[in-house]
């Protein structure tokens, strides 16, 4: 499955557009990690646990999107966009969407 955030795949031709596909996930922070994060908040610096949490969440959302695209019979997703929203205190939604296409 090819994923790209431009509307073409260099060197390949699109033979069929299959419409929009999307994937999302809502993640909450781990309470223990949150305590560690608030300690880190005194000293400053990177919050590795949050970085990993968000990265995993994005991978999960992307997985869901590609699964949906596969179900439509696509072999690539183009024009992919990522979005983040915080819906409640301590929880974040990661959202990814794109256009499923079939390449020759």
């Amino acid at each position: 499955m090819l994923i790209s955030n431009v509307e073409i795949i260099p060197g390949r031709r699109i033979i069929k557009h299959l419409g929009m596909v999307q994937g999302n996930t809502v993640r909450a922070k781990h309470a223990g990690k949150d305590i560690m994060a608030s300690f880190k908040n005194i000293f400053g610096g990177e919050l590795k646990s949050y970085t990993e949490l968000l990265q995993e969440a994005r991978e999960e959302a992307t997985d869901r999107m590609t699964r949906q695209a596969k179900g439509l019979g696509a072999n690539a997703v183009i024009n992919v966009r990522f979005a983040t929203s915080s819906i409640a205190a301590g929880a974040a939604e990661l959202f990814v969407y794109g256009t499923a296409v079939e390449l020759d």
Binding site: G11, N41, G44, L47, Q55, F82
Partner: peptide
């Protein structure tokens, strides 16, 4: 730029990403 320039060389493409969460320190806050 949105699109790569039209190229005669054969290329492949791949989505790449990077993320980071950085916290502010108490003094700065």
């Amino acid at each position: 730029e949105r699109l790569p320039p039209p190229n005669t060389r054969p290329v492949e493409s791949q989505l790449v990403s990077g993320n980071v969460v950085i916290s502010v320190d108490y003094f700065k806050q």
